[in-house]
Design a protein around this nucleic acid. Structure first.
Length: 820
RNA sequence: GCGAGAGUGGCGGAAUUGGCAGACGCACUGGAUUUAGGAUCCAGCCCGCUACGCGGUUGGGGGUUCGAGUCCCCCCUCUCGCACCA
C-alpha cells in the first residue's frame, strides 16, 4: 500500500500549484475577495497566523470550487517598531532585518499550502507602496483633512513615540504595557471627527455582516452624544462659561458649576475669587496624577468666583474638579447633585446643596432623605415655567428657551478625537512635509514625491530616530522659495499603511497609480475579511475612515471597504494566550515537520468554531492526523481494487441499502456546503465528513448492487469536501482514486434534493412528553395515519392503560406525543 | 458601575425554525491482531438505581407550552469591551 508521507505530497502539490498559477482569479463567476489581516513580519509565524490564514484559505478554496472568481492576496505590514529594536540589538538595518523576515515567513506560509495569488504580494515598506500614501497625505493636507496642531498627546516611554488615543489602553500602550504619559507636542492629525456621523451611520449597514461586539465597540468609541451647550455668565470675567449637558431638563437643579483644572478660565476665576495661590497648588497636584489615578478620586476646589444660571439668574459657585475632562465637551459641566451620581458625591464632600427638580412616579424627592442621585427621567418641579413637563419634553423646551435668550444651543458631542498620526520613529513612511522659515509649513510637491526613507542607516543605541541627524535627509531646499529648509522627520503611524493595503492588492505593481478604479470596483468591498478582534476599533475604524477620505478625494467610489467580517479567537495553551514570555508557544514548523501541513490546518479549524478561542491540544492534533491517515488508507485500499469514475451512480442501479448510503453522501454534501458557505462553522462541517467516512468504513460494498461505483462516489465526494481543509492529501488521493490529474477541475459537489428523502424513517412516540417507543414508518405517511399507528403501538397502549388520550400531537417526520 | 457574550459529560464541542440532549473528536475501559510496544480494527463510554427496565440531567429558581438547552421573568458565575464622556 502506498505510504502516507505528508512531506512528499505536500511539496509535490505546492510545486504543482505554483507551476500552474493555480490561484490567479479565474473563470467568469461572481467575484469573491477573500482577505485576511496581513502579518507584521516579526520573523516567525505563530499558531495564531496558522489559524487565521487556514480559515481564510478554506473559504477561498471553497468558493473557488463553487465557481466564484476568487481573489486571495497576501502581503506584509512591514513598517513598525520591532524592526528598530531588533536593529539595535543585532546591529543590522531595520530594512534588511524586515526583508529577511519576510523571506523566512513567506517560506513558512508556503509550507502550509495557502492559495494566495503570488502576483499580488506587497510589502508596505517598499517605496512603491508608501509613495502613494504620501500622495494621499498631500491631498489630505490640501483638503484640510490632515492638519498640524500642538496638543496634549499620549507619550509612550517604551516606544519612544506618541500614540493615537485608540492605541492607549487605560494608562498604557496597547502592545506592551509601557506607561503612557501626557505630553504637549506639535503633531499631525487626520480629521476623523469630520466623519464621525458617517462612520456611525455606516455601522447600520454592517449589521448582520460584522459581529455585534465589534459594531458596539465602534459605536461606543465614536461616542455620539446629543445635548445642549448652556452659557453661564461669569460676572468676574465679563464673559460666558460654556458647559455641555445631556440633561438640560435638570438645569433648575444646578447648584454649582465645575470646570477642568486645565480649563483656560480656571486660574482667572481663582484670581477673581482671591484664591490664586491655593488654586495653583490644586492644579499642580491634579496634573501630577495619571489619568487612571485621577479617575479614582473626586477632588474639588472652590474658586471663590460665581456663575449665573441663565434660566433663573441664580449665582452658584464655580469649582475646579479633577473629574472634569478638558478633552471632552467644553471642559466644563453644570452640576446637579440631585440627578447625577458624580455631582451628588461631589456635593456631599463639599457641602453643596442638593436640589431635586425631577420627580419619580412616586412623587418629588426630599433632598435630605436622598442617599444617591435620581438619574432617571421624570416630571419637572421647581423649574419655573417648565413645571409638570416630562424630562424629554423639558429638554426640548428648555433648549428652545435658551436659544431664544441666546444663552445656549443644541450640540452634538463625540468621544472620538482626531487621529494623531505623527510618530517620532525611523522605520515608517516619511511625512511629506517641509518646514521653511519664510514659507512656513509646505507640502512636498507631488512631482517631488516620493520622499524616500533612507534604508542604509545605523540605529543609535538610544533608540532615537536617526532621521533628524541625517543631513542628507533632513536638510532640503524649500519648494516655495528655494531657501534652506528642514524636512519633517517624524514618520506616519503604521496603521496608515494597513488602512488601504486591501485596495493596493487589486493593482499590485501598478507604477502609474495607487490602484486601478476598475479593479477596485470589481473586487471591493472585500467579500469576507478574517482577523483578530483586537483591531475592532483600531485598524477596522481607521480603514473605514481612510476609504471614505479616498472616496472624497476622488480615488474610488466606495464607502465601506469590508463586507462580511469574521473575528477569530485566540490560540490558547494551558489557559493563556501563547507567548514567548509564558513559554507556551507551539512552533508551526515543528508541527508541520511532525504531522504535515494538512494536519496543522485540519486541527486549526476542527477543534473549535472559528470565533471562539482554540485550546491547543497535542492529543487533538493526533486525532486530526489519525483521521487523515484513515481517509488515506480507505481511499488507497479502495483504489487498488477500483478506480475511475467517481460521479453519482444515481438511485436506479442501487439496492435499498445502496440508496440509503447514497442518501448519506448527499446529506453530507448539503451539510458541509451549508456549514462552510453560510454558517462559517468548519468544525461541524468536518464532523459531518467524519460521519460519512465512518459510515463508509463499516459498509460492505461487495454485497451491494453497483457497489464499486457507489464506493467510488462516496470516497470521491469525501475528497472533494475535504479539499478546502486538507488540499494536499485530498488532491493526491483524488489522483489515486480517479486517475485524473487535477481535482480543482471537478468543482464542488451539489447535493440531490431527491436523494435526501428517506424511504422509511423512525418516528419517536411519546406519552406525556416522555419517549416510550419508536416505530419505523414509510417517509410519505400522512398525518392521520401516523397518529393512528402511534395509538396502536403496544407500548403506547400499555402506558395509556385504558385511558383515553386527551390530545395527540403529530409532528410529521419527527414524533407523536400522546397526552393523557 | 454600564454594555455585550457565554454557562451542556472527565475534556474540546454538537443540537439551523421550540420536537430523540450529548453529533464529531479527545481521554478512558474491554476485546481482536501483534514476540513486545506502537499503529490498526471491533465494542463500550452523561449520572443514579434491584440494570433488556426505570428515574434524573443543559449554572440555580420560577413561568409559557402537548413538548424548553432553545422563548419569557428573577438570581448566580465567568469572559470580553468601555469605564468619572457630563
Amino acid at each position: 500500500m502506498k505510504f502516507y508521507d505528508p512531506s512528499v505530497i505536500e511539496k509535490k502539490w505546492q510545486c504543482h500549484w505554483q507551476d500552474n498559477d493555480s490561484f490567479k482569479p479565474a473563470g467568469d463567476g461572481t467575484p469573491y475577495y477573500q482577505l485576511e489581516m496581513f502579518p507584521y513580519p516579526s520573523g516567525r509565524i505563530h499558531m495564531g497566523h496558522v489559524r487565521n490564514y487556514t480559515i481564510g484559505d478554506v473559504l477561498a478554496r471553497f468558493h473557488a470550487a463553487r465557481g466564484r472568481r476568487v481573489f486571495h492576496p497576501m502581503g506584509w505590514d512591514a513598517f513598525g517598531l520591532p524592526a528598530e529594536a531588533a536593529a539595535i540589538e543585532r546591529g543590522v538595518a531595520p530594512a534588511s532585518w524586515t526583508r529577511s523576515n519576510i523571506e523566512e515567513m513567506k517560506k513558512q506560509l508556503g509550507r502550509l499550502g495557502f492559495s494566495y495569488d503570488p502576483g499580488t504580494e506587497l510589502a508596505t515598506c517598499d517605496v512603491d507602496y508608501y509613495r502613494w500614501e504620501q500622495l494621499f497625505f498631500v491631498q489630505m493636507l490640501e483638503r484640510g483633512i490632515a492638519y498640524r496642531k500642538s496638543a496634549v498627546v499620549n507619550w509612550c516611554e517604551g516606544c519612544g513615540t506618541v500614540l493615537a488615543n485608540e492605541q492607549v489602553d487605560g494608562d498604557s500602550c496597547w502592545r506592551g504595557h509601557s506607561p503612557v504619559t501626557p505630553r504637549e507636542l506639535d503633531q499631525w492629525f487626520l480629521k476623523i471627527t469630520d466623519y464621525a456621523d458617517e462612520l456611525l451611520d455606516g455601522l447600520d449597514e454592517l449589521k448582520g455582516k460584522w459581529p455585534d461586539k465589534v459594531l458596539t465597540m465602534q459605536r461606543n468609541w465614536i461616542g455620539r452624544s446629543e445635548g445642549v451647550e448652556v452659557f453661564f455668565e461669569l460676572p468676574a470675567l465679563g464673559e460666558p462659561l460654556k458647559v455641555f449637558t445631556t440633561r438640560v431638563d435638570t438645569l433648575f437643579g444646578a447648584t454649582f458649576v465645575c470646570i477642568a483644572p486645565e480649563h483656560p478660565a480656571a486660574m482667572k476665576l481663582a484670581e477673581a475669587g482671591g484664591r490664586e495661590k491655593e488654586a495653583r497648588e490644586f492644579v499642580a497636584a491634579v496634573a501630577a496624577r495619571s489619568n487612571v489615578e485621577r479617575a479614582q478620586g473626586k477632588q474639588g476646589f472652590d474658586t471663590g468666583s460665581r456663575a449665573v444660571n441663565p434660566v433663573n439668574g441664580e449665582e452658584i459657585p464655580v469649582f475646579l474638579g479633577d473629574f472634569v475632562l478638558m478633552g471632552y465637551g467644553t471642559g466644563a459641566v453644570m452640576s446637579v447633585p440631585a440627578h447625577d451620581q458624580r455631582d451628588f458625591e461631589f456635593a456631599r464632600g463639599n457641602c453643596i446643596a442638593v436640589r431635586p427638580v425631577i420627580a419619580p412616579p412616586a412623587g418629588p424627592l426630599v433632598a435630605t432623605d436622598m442617599t444617591e442621585a435620581m438619574v432617571e427621567d421624570g416630571i419637572l418641579h421647581d423649574s419655573g415655567d417648565f413645571d409638570g413637563l416630562a424630562s424629554s419634553d423639558a429638554r426640548e423646551g428648555i433648549c428652545a428657551q435658551l436659544v431664544k435668550m441666546q444663552r445656549g444651543r443644541a450640540v452634538v458631542n463625540y468621544r472620538l478625537r482626531d487621529w494623531g498620526i505623527s510618530r517620532q520613529r525611523y522605520w515608517g513612511c516619511p511625512i511629506p512635509v517641509i518646514y521653511c522659515d519664510s514659507c512656513g509649513t509646505v507640502a512636498v510637491p507631488e512631482k517631488d514625491l516620493p520622499v524616500v526613507l533612507p534604508e542604509d542607516i545605523t540605529m543609535p543605541p538610544s533608540g532615537a530616530s536617526p532621521l533628524a541627524s541625517l543631513t542628507g535627509f533632513a536638510q532640503v531646499s524649500c519648494p516655495g522659495c528655494g531657501g534652506e529648509a528642514r524636512r519633517e522627520t517624524d514618520t506616519m503611524d503604521t496603521f496608515m499603511e494597513s488602512s488601504w493595503y486591501f485596495l493596493r492588492y487589486t493593482s499590485a505593481g501598478d507604477e502609474q497609480r495607487p490602484f486601478d478604479p476598475a479593479a477596485v470596483a470589481e473586487w471591493l468591498p472585500v467579500s469576507q475579511y478574517v482577523g483578530g478582534v483586537e483591531h475592532a476599533v483600531l485598524h477596522l475604524l481607521y480603514s473605514r475612515f481612510f476609504t471614505r477620505v479616498l472616496r472624497d478625494l476622488g480615488w474610488l467610489d466606495l464607502s465601506e471597504p469590508f463586507g462580511e467580517l469574521l473575528t477569530q479567537g485566540m490560540v490558547i495553551k494551558d489557559g493563556s494566550k501563547m507567548s514567548k514570555s509564558k513559554g507556551n508557544v507551539v512552533d508551526p514548523d515543528e508541527l508541520i515537520e511532525r504531522y504535515g501541513a494538512d494536519t496543522a490546518r485540519l486541527f486549526s479549524v476542527f477543534a473549535a468554531p472559528p470565533e471562539k478561542d482554540l485550546e491547543w491540544s497535542e492529543k487533538g492534533v493526533e486525532g486530526a492526523s489519525r483521521f487523515i491517515s484513515r481517509v488515506w488508507r480507505q481511499v488507497v485500499v479502495a483504489a487498488e481494487e477500483t478506480s475511475g469514475d467517481c460521479s453519482d451512480p444515481g438511485p436506479e442501479s442501487l439496492d435499498e441499502e445502496g440508496r440509503r448510503l447514497r442518501g448519506v453522501v448527499h446529506e453530507t454534501i448539503q451539510r458541509v456546503s451549508h456549514d462552510v458557505g453560510a454558517r462559517l462553522r468548519f468544525n461541524t462541517a468536518i464532523a459531518a465528513i467524519m460521519e460519512l467516512v465512518n459510515e463508509y468504513q463499516s459498509a460492505d460494498f461487495t454485497a451491494l448492487a453497483d457497489g464499486e461505483r457507489l464506493h467510488r462516489f462516496g470516497l470521491g465526494t469525501v475528497l472533494l469536501l475535504l479539499g478546502p481543509f486538507v488540499p494536499h492529501v485530498a488532491n493526491e488521493l483524488w489522483g489515486e482514486l480517479t486517475g485524473q490529474e487535477d481535482m480543482n477541475q471537478q468543482g464542488w459537489p451539489v447535493h440531490d434534493e431527491a436523494a435526501l428523502l428517506r424511504e422509511s424513517i423512525e418516528i419517536v412516540l411519546q406519552v406525556n412528553g416522555k419517549i416510550r417507543s419508536r416505530i419505523q414508518v414509510s417517509a410519505d405517511i400522512d398525518r392521520d395515519e401516523l397518529g393512528r399507528l402511534a395509538l396502536a403501538d403496544s407500548r403506547v397502549i400499555a402506558y395509556l392503560d385504558g385511558a383515553d388520550p386527551r390530545k395527540v400531537v403529530v409532528v410529521p417526520g419527527r414524533l407523536v406525543n400522546v397526552v393523557i
